[in-house]
């Protein structure tokens, strides 16, 4: 059972390079400050080409999800979440919630999450999200 890994392009390669070393990388516009996803070599808000990669905190909350009861042929035969997570930096991503039973009772809307990386191939480590450890959820009190 091997999940189909994605095929990076030159514009997205730094994202996948980051994931391989355990970093969730985003881009931010140096002109207007917008942080965005997916990657591209310009800012979608103001079209500045002065954009910088940075290491995101990896913190997120669970915005919404489904529990897929008919997994794709290249996935394990168990129900799995497909979620929208909201990153601390703002952008929302599609992802999976892991490390927790895949039930509506366990997957609570707004629960704090932390990025972890799932190896799909030698080159591809997929950013997915697990419940945040309590120490991670404490914002500056």
């Amino acid at each position: 059972m091997t999940k189909r890994p994605p095929t990076p392009t030159p514009e997205t390669q730094p994202y996948w390079d980051g994931a391989k070393v355990g970093e969730l990388r985003l881009q931010r516009c140096a002109d207007c400050g917008d942080a965005y996803s997916p990657p591209r070599p310009f800012c979608p808000a103001c079209h500045s080409r002065d954009v910088r990669w940075f290491k995101a905190s990896g913190r997120a909350t669970l915005y919404s999800y489904v529990i897929n009861h008919r997994p794709r042929a290249d996935w394990p035969r168990q129900p799995h979440s497909i979620a929208i997570v909201e990153l601390a930096e703002g952008p929302r991503l599609v992802s999976n919630i892991v490390g927790i039973p895949q039930t509506p009772a366990d997957l609570k809307i707004d629960m704090p999450l932390q990025v972890v990386f799932e190896k799909l191939s030698d080159d591809i480590y997929l950013p997915v999200f697990a419940p945040a450890a309590p120490s991670v959820t404490v914002d500056n009190p």
Binding site: W16, P38, N68, N96
Partner: peptide, 9 residues
Amino acid sequence: QFEYVYGWS
């Protein structure tokens, strides 16, 4: 890269 890879079925 950003949607199908999460098991979009």
